[in-house]
Amino acid sequence: MTPAQFTAETSGRGEFVRQANRFTQRITADGSSDWPVEPGRYRLVVSLACPWAHRSVIVRRLLGLEDALSLAVVDPIRDARGWRFSLDEGGRDPVLGIEFLSEAYLATDPSFTGRYTVPAIVDVHTGQVATNDYPRITLDLSTQWREFHRDGAPDLYPEPLRAEIDAVIEPIFRNVNNGVYRCGFAASQQAYEEAFHDLFGELDRLSDRLATQRYLVGDTITEADIRLFTTLVRFDAVYHGHFKCNRQKLTEMPVLWAYARDLFQTPGFGDTVDFDHIKRHYYGTHEQLNPSGIVPLGPDESGWHTPHGREALGGSPFGTGTPPPAV
């Protein structure tokens, strides 16, 4: 089957408009929703190429939820029916028994006509999507699934810091996480330039903040660092060229490059990155941006393993906790 072209929605001014999440119920520990926390009941469906899904992969690993919440990885190339399970034997997810994520979406809402997005948490028993609300998924893994965290798991959303974390991640989402898409899929010069300036203005502010502190909020890794990392780790590989985010490469922004390397070398971050999936997805799926479908060979990935020197700023990734075990 041929790859499907990603068609971006835009406003009348040519601004990229992100599709709203369709399934926004929460999986809760107190029974306040239709989806109770229950180990083994749900399957987290992700693309290793997708930054939004990558967040949930990192959080799941840091918290040690592998035994409680199983993981399904889709092919980085979507076909005409969306994300597919062609990496699995027989092209079918071994737990859900489906070939395409769309089957779970349509089992939940037969009238759904939007894009079938990842991450999605699917109920194994019914085959329905419990949630595809990616901002909430990771927060709930930290707070609602606490009973099943590993010993020594970090608190990625500590209650005393939640207001500050929320304040930090809002402009990161608008200007950086979504900002690179606003650049890449802008349909007018004005929309592109506005997104470009928002993106690099925010990166400059983050660089100033991180020049004197190791992490975005507090002395340990939090949800804020995870959300920024998944965009930074893709920046030079795809966003700089493919999305025209080309004022500078990440490797040309000293503070952010050192910060990103620090996180990459922290267990749970770099060991969840798949540059092959990332590049093949972006360059092979966005036909309107890369009609040839050629996937670039660079950049050189060895720089991610070079010393970063961020230890001098104090703090430690896991505080009084421990890193996740080696993969």
Score class of each variant (00 low, 15 high):
residue 133 D to T: 15
residue 133 D to G: 15
residue 134 Y to G: 02
residue 136 R to S: 14
residue 139 L to P: 04
residue 141 L to D: 00
residue 141 L to C: 10
residue 143 T to L: 15
residue 143 T to C: 15
residue 144 Q to Y: 04
residue 144 Q to P: 02
residue 146 R to E: 01
residue 148 F to M: 12
residue 148 F to K: 06
residue 149 H to I: 07
residue 152 G to N: 08
residue 153 A to F: 07
residue 155 D to A: 08
residue 155 D to W: 11
residue 156 L to C: 07
residue 156 L to D: 08
residue 156 L to G: 09
residue 157 Y to P: 04
residue 159 E to L: 13
residue 160 P to D: 13
residue 163 A to Q: 13
residue 164 E to S: 06
residue 167 A to W: 05
residue 168 V to K: 01
residue 176 V to N: 00
residue 181 Y to D: 03
residue 182 R to A: 00
residue 182 R to E: 00
residue 183 C to I: 15
residue 188 S to K: 07
residue 188 S to L: 03
residue 190 Q to F: 00
residue 191 A to D: 04
residue 191 A to Q: 07
residue 193 E to M: 03
residue 194 E to A: 06
residue 195 A to M: 14
residue 197 H to M: 05
residue 197 H to C: 02
residue 198 D to N: 15
residue 200 F to S: 02
residue 207 S to K: 15
residue 213 Q to W: 06
residue 214 R to H: 12
residue 218 G to L: 06
residue 220 T to Q: 13
residue 223 E to T: 13
residue 224 A to C: 11
residue 231 T to N: 04
residue 232 L to E: 00
residue 234 R to Q: 07
residue 235 F to T: 12
residue 236 D to E: 06
residue 237 A to E: 08
residue 238 V to Y: 01
residue 240 H to N: 10
residue 240 H to A: 08
residue 245 C to G: 03
residue 247 R to G: 00
residue 248 Q to M: 10
residue 251 T to S: 11
residue 251 T to E: 07
residue 251 T to V: 08
residue 252 E to P: 06
residue 253 M to A: 06
residue 254 P to V: 14
residue 254 P to A: 09
residue 261 R to Q: 13
residue 261 R to N: 12
residue 265 Q to S: 03
residue 268 G to E: 12
residue 273 V to N: 08
residue 277 H to L: 14
